[in-house]
Computed example of a mutant assay.
Amino acid sequence: MGIDITWARDELAQFLKLTELYRPADPPGVMTVSSHLSNRGSPAEIVASAHVVEQILDRVLPRWRTEVPGDRNKTVNRWCQHREAAQRADAAMQRDAEVRARLGDDAPQLSAGFMHPWAWDGAKALWRSGHFREAVTAAARKVNAETQNKVGRRDLSETKLFQSVFSQNSPKAGEPRLRLMVDDGGDTFRSVHRGAMAFAEGCYAGIRNPNSHEDGLPELPEHEALEQLAAFSVLARWVESAAVETA
């Protein structure tokens, strides 16, 4: 499901209003000389709003914590990083389609936040700090672990695990299979499971292993890492949707 743009923008606007700085009025009959500024909202209101706003920012600007400057004017307003990120996110949601169309690239956009949770949840902490290669590796481990959990096997992992679970052979004791469709003896069943096995092998042999075992590799560009993460998201959806067949 996509973001509810209207709701998200309203939440950002409310947060920006609460964190706006102003100079409190002097008490009646008293004149003070002070440069002290206050937020319009109470600390409790701002913290409650920030809880929601941070989740919106994580979806719209996944790397806002590292890409948006966080040390400017914190002595004046501790929420300065959140405010700038909120303003950027609001502009992104409001004008993203327009900007892409005007720049000549209105192709569909791929967002990690919409990928399968096994892939994104495993990767997001490292992703947000710019460790893209390690993030993809973490996603691969998460998909492997969830597959092991689904079929109840810890004796196999990664390539050998997927060769077993997507095998077209009948299940044996201690060797359950994952079925993406009912085995009707037809070519489609054989093609689907042969393809799933080959795809999983490619993910681990061609993506996970080089990322994990090659020292000194340069950091992956973010768009390449996103493509690799998408591959594990596809595999995760297949595994989650598959039926477990036991002997």
Rank of each mutant, 00 (worst) to 15 (best):
F232H: 07
V234S: 05
T66C: 08
E146K: 15
P176K: 13
D58F: 04
A50P: 07
D121H: 05
E240Q: 14
V165A: 08
A125T: 05
F232C: 08
N39T: 13
A200P: 10
R194G: 15
R141H: 02
V234G: 01
V33R: 14
V52M: 06
A139G: 11
N209H: 06
Q87E: 09
L226R: 13
A135W: 03
V76D: 01
D106E: 06
W79R: 04
V68I: 13
R237F: 09
T246E: 15
R59F: 07
R40V: 10
R179W: 14
A119I: 05
G70D: 07
F15D: 11
H116C: 02
L110Q: 03
P117W: 00
H116S: 02
T32M: 13
V60P: 01
R63F: 02
L126V: 05
Q81F: 10
M181W: 09
A13M: 08
R102G: 04
R40W: 11
A123K: 04
F166D: 05
A89Q: 08
A236Y: 02
P27Y: 13
Q14G: 11
S241D: 11
D183V: 10
S167F: 06
L161R: 03
N73P: 02
A145M: 11
G104Q: 03
P24I: 09
K150A: 06
E20K: 15
D10S: 14
